[in-house]
Computed example of a mutant assay.
Amino acid sequence: MQNINGRQGASFVQLIADGSATYGYGHISRSREVADAFSESGFEVEYINLLERPSAQLTDHGRSGLTVIDLPYPDDTWLNSARQRGNKVIGLDYLGQGSPDCLIRMNQPLTEIPCARLLFGLEYAIIRKSIRNATASRGDYVLVSIGGADVGNHGLATAATLSALGLKAILVRGPLSGRVENTFTNVTVVESPPDFPGLLARSSWVVSNGGTTMVEAMSLGKAVHVIAQTSEEERFARPLHNSGLLLGVGSHHLRAPTEDEITSTGFRAQNAVDARGSERIVKLGQQLLGQDQVPS
């Protein structure tokens, strides 16, 4: 997907995202949602998925616009290219040193990252429309989804632990996850299911990594136990657990929660994630281009 729309004379935004079996798939899935949000707000959108188009370059529109960079590694190449074209730049979890006009994260960075403006918090959680449109209910299974790549290959072991606890589990393997051999009772393995939003919405509770899937589940009012794929995910998840927004963090602490824990944790989680992250990012982009006021 490159040009989502091409409205003549419209403001344009270029979005760059990447992912891999090493870095996961969350940056790609959430940036697609941001691209759609800009398109729905009247922007001409150019979306560059570097996993599919590793040699892509920014299009020169002959006028300045907006560039949104969502990369899981430090790289100032795209920011420098955007600056050469006179573009304003938003960095999502930006790790480079090029100083975007606005750096947006869900948690405060561990070290200082150069930027003109830093915004962070769960209000910037990007929730896909398919998740927002899903109707939450309470099923009889635990959904296990350790990201689109399952970087540490924790998914099957987690599902096996749940099976040993006498719980029914559905293990979702994402597009960058390798195949696994399932020999466990009460465990169903599904590969990149098209009805992932429905599976998530109908689960009893969720075990996920500490990224996109976690906040999507929280937005549906699901109680979540986090198996972090990286030290950064763990740093993000720990304070949420301490605030009562998660069931727990870490494979060693995985257990069957009580009904009250499932209900109360899910309630607090849903109140913390209002699913308006994409909307806020679009408003910030409009503000940078002089089109709108500071977003709420």
Rank of each mutant, 00 (worst) to 15 (best):
A272Y: 02
R32G: 06
F196S: 07
V207Y: 01
H225D: 09
T59F: 07
L66C: 10
T22C: 08
D260P: 05
L15D: 04
D36N: 13
M214A: 09
A164D: 15
L176V: 00
G86I: 13
L254N: 05
P194G: 10
D195F: 11
D274M: 11
Q84F: 08
T212Y: 11
D36Y: 12
V273F: 06
Q287G: 06
R280L: 13
I104E: 08
A269V: 00
N3D: 12
G250R: 00
P54V: 07
N153S: 07
E112D: 14
G221R: 05
P193V: 10
L103F: 03
S231A: 15
Q57P: 05
L289D: 06
E123N: 15
D18W: 04
E232D: 15
L289S: 09
L15C: 11
I262C: 01
S251P: 08
E216A: 09
D195E: 15
P74Q: 11
T67Q: 09
V89A: 02
I16G: 07
V249H: 01
I16Y: 09
E191C: 10
L156C: 04
L200D: 01
S278D: 11
A134D: 09
L119A: 13
R280N: 08
L171C: 02
I227Y: 01
N209H: 11
A237W: 00
L220H: 09
L162H: 03
L58K: 09
A157G: 07
Y25M: 07
E232A: 14
P114S: 06
S264G: 05
S130N: 15
I113P: 01
L167S: 09
I127D: 09
P197M: 07
S204R: 15
I262P: 00
V224R: 05
P109M: 10
P114H: 04
Y73N: 10
G26T: 03
H252G: 11
T161V: 08
I90D: 03
Y47G: 05
A10T: 02
Y23F: 15
C102S: 10
A217E: 08
H225G: 08
T185M: 09
D75V: 01
T158F: 03
G6Q: 14
P72I: 03
Q291T: 09
V294E: 15
L289N: 07
A134H: 06
N80I: 12
A116G: 14
A149E: 00
R276N: 14
A159S: 04
F43L: 01
S81Q: 15
G250T: 03
R85S: 13
T185L: 12
N182V: 11
L79Y: 00
L176T: 00
P100K: 02
A157I: 04
R179M: 10
G211Y: 04
R138N: 15
S130I: 10
T183Q: 14
R173W: 00
T230C: 13
V207D: 02
T158V: 14
D36I: 12
E259L: 12
I90A: 05
I127K: 11
D101P: 03
H241G: 04
R179P: 06
D18N: 13
P175M: 00
D60G: 08
Q84P: 06
E181A: 13
I127F: 13
